[in-house]
Every structure is written in C-alpha cells, then in structure tokens.
C-alpha cells in the first residue's frame, strides 16, 4: 500500500446524491455527520465536488430524470471509487417497485459495491456500509490515469 492509498483509507471523502429518495435516508446520512455519530472522527468529510470524492452514497430508487445526473456524477469521480447504495429502495426499488417512473435500484444505472439495507437505513448501518466499502477500496488497484498508457500503468503497479 503506497502513501496515497494509505491517505485515502484514513480520510475517505464522501459525495451524497439523492436519486429520488424520500429524504428519510438523506437525513440519516446528515445525522452521521453530526455530534452523536460524528463520522468526521474517521476522517470522512461530506464534499459537494465529485472530483474530490472517493465514496458515492446514493439514496433512492433512481428515476428516469435523475439517471443522467447520477451517471454524470459517477463518471466525474476519479478512480478508484466505490458506490454505496443506501436504503432498501436504492438497493432494490423496495416500496417503489411498482412505480412507473422508478428504475428500481442504483445498480440498474451504475455498478454498486455495498448495499445498505433499512428503510430508512440507520446511521450505524450507513457507517458500517462505508467501512465495508473502504475494505474493498483498499484492494482496488489504481486505474490508469489519463495520459498514461495501460502498459505503463501496469509497470508502475508492479513496482509498488
């Protein structure tokens, strides 16, 4: 594990996107930041900029209008990155399974690493989900950066 990877584990920056959720999980994510749960003690910060973020927290079943926004945010995040689907409806559509405008889960649009159950997911569960995701993030190889060919990237990876 090199220095950058170590730093990433110590301080995962989080981007939160509401993809059609009922706000229940969103206020629980905000609760994680506040003194009772205080995820900042793990170095986690809620950022507004996808280019700074390592973890994407998505709530809600994803509808046809915000699908584009979600994909756009995901593509703007730099590798390596993980996606955590927070709540039952982000995982599977849940109670909105028969709503005509819902796609039924975040994994219909972007790849998901961790599914956090619960309606609304409790702050403890969300924190647990992010920590599980970080274990996955630690094992992810750094993808080739723009401007570096994949052969070069493999060589760099092998030297580590």
């Amino acid at each position: 594990m090199n220095l950058i990877q170590k730093a990433r584990m110590k301080s995962p920056w989080i981007l939160h996107f509401n993809a059609g959720s009922c706000n229940g999980c969103d206020i629980e994510i905000l609760s994680c930041l506040t003194p009772v749960y205080d995820i900042e003690r793990f170095g986690a910060v809620n950022v507004g900029n996808p280019k700074h973020a390592d973890v994407l927290l998505v709530t809600g079943p994803v509808n046809r209008r915000n699908e584009r926004v979600l994909r756009n945010l995901y593509e703007q995040m730099l590798d390596p990155k993980i996606v955590v689907a927070v709540g039952t409806c982000a995982s599977s559509g849940g109670v909105f399974h028969n709503c005509y405008n819902c796609l039924g889960g975040v994994d219909k649009v972007i790849p998901v690493d961790v599914y956090v159950p619960g309606c609304a997911a409790k702050p403890e569960t969300i924190i647990e989900g992010v920590i599980l995701g970080l274990e996955k993030l630690a094992k992810m190889p750094a993808k080739p950066r723009p401007g570096r060919t994949s052969a070069e990237a493999e060589k760099v990876e092998a030297e580590r």
Partner: peptide, 30 residues
C-alpha cells in the same frame, strides 16, 4: 422539477388500500 418524481399516486391505485399506509409514509421521510 421532476428529479424525485416516482409516481406514488398511481402506485396507490395498484396496491391494496391497507398496504398504501406504508407507501404514503415514503412520500416524504421527514
């Protein structure tokens, strides 16, 4: 608008009227 539109009013016609209690709770979590 439209980023959170799910179609709950229509889903309210598809569910049993007793199941709807759980659906309408998810109109707004707050």
């Amino acid at each position: 608008l439209g980023y959170v539109h799910r179609g709950i009013e229509k889903a309210g016609e598809l569910n049993d009227f007793q199941q709807n209690v759980f659906l309408v709770e998810r109109v707004c979590g707050i």
